[in-house]
Amino acid sequence: MYKEQNYENKFRLLTNHSKDTLFSQHFMDKKGISKAYINEKMAINKSIRDKEVVSIKSKNGCIDVEINIDNSISDYVIQMYVGWWKKHGNPNYVTESNISDIGGQITYNETFIDIIKQN
């Protein structure tokens, strides 16, 4: 699936459910764009400030997100919560939509992305 690409210096986008909800209706009426989280070391590495808006891009698409610095996130990982709607920047637009080998569920939970500064 990923063999044809070079993943050096790419970030692994992980999308998981918030501890507060499993459902997207809680993000439906939020204002602004979706939030993504990286650690301080990676923010410095990419010259990104806390609350800066960047684009994240995969071979499937591109969305804009607000970066939030969170040192509980591993190096070369960008984390987002599922449930953002299209108007916010839904991470499903950049992830793979394959079928898992366990249970036949959709695998919208990770992909490799580039972080692109907007200016």
Rank of each mutant, 00 (worst) to 15 (best):
I115H: 05
Q105L: 13
K46R: 08
N60T: 08
Y93N: 15
V53K: 04
D70M: 05
S18W: 11
K35A: 09
K10T: 08
N119V: 04
I78G: 02
I113H: 07
S74N: 07
K51W: 00
G103P: 03
I102D: 08
I73Y: 04
S18N: 11
Q105N: 10
V65H: 02
V82G: 13
N16A: 14
H88E: 07
R12Y: 04
E4C: 01
K57R: 15
K87F: 10
K51L: 02
N119C: 05
K87G: 08
A43Y: 00
K30S: 07
R49A: 07
Q79S: 12
F27R: 10
G104V: 06
D64E: 13
I56R: 11
Y2P: 01
E96D: 15
I63E: 08
I69H: 04
W85L: 10
V54Y: 00
A36S: 15
T15A: 12
D114L: 14
I106E: 06
D70V: 04
H88D: 09
M28F: 10
I106R: 09
H88G: 09
K30W: 05
Y76S: 08
T111R: 06
N68I: 10
K46P: 00
E8Y: 09
N9V: 08
Q118D: 12
I67M: 01
S97F: 12
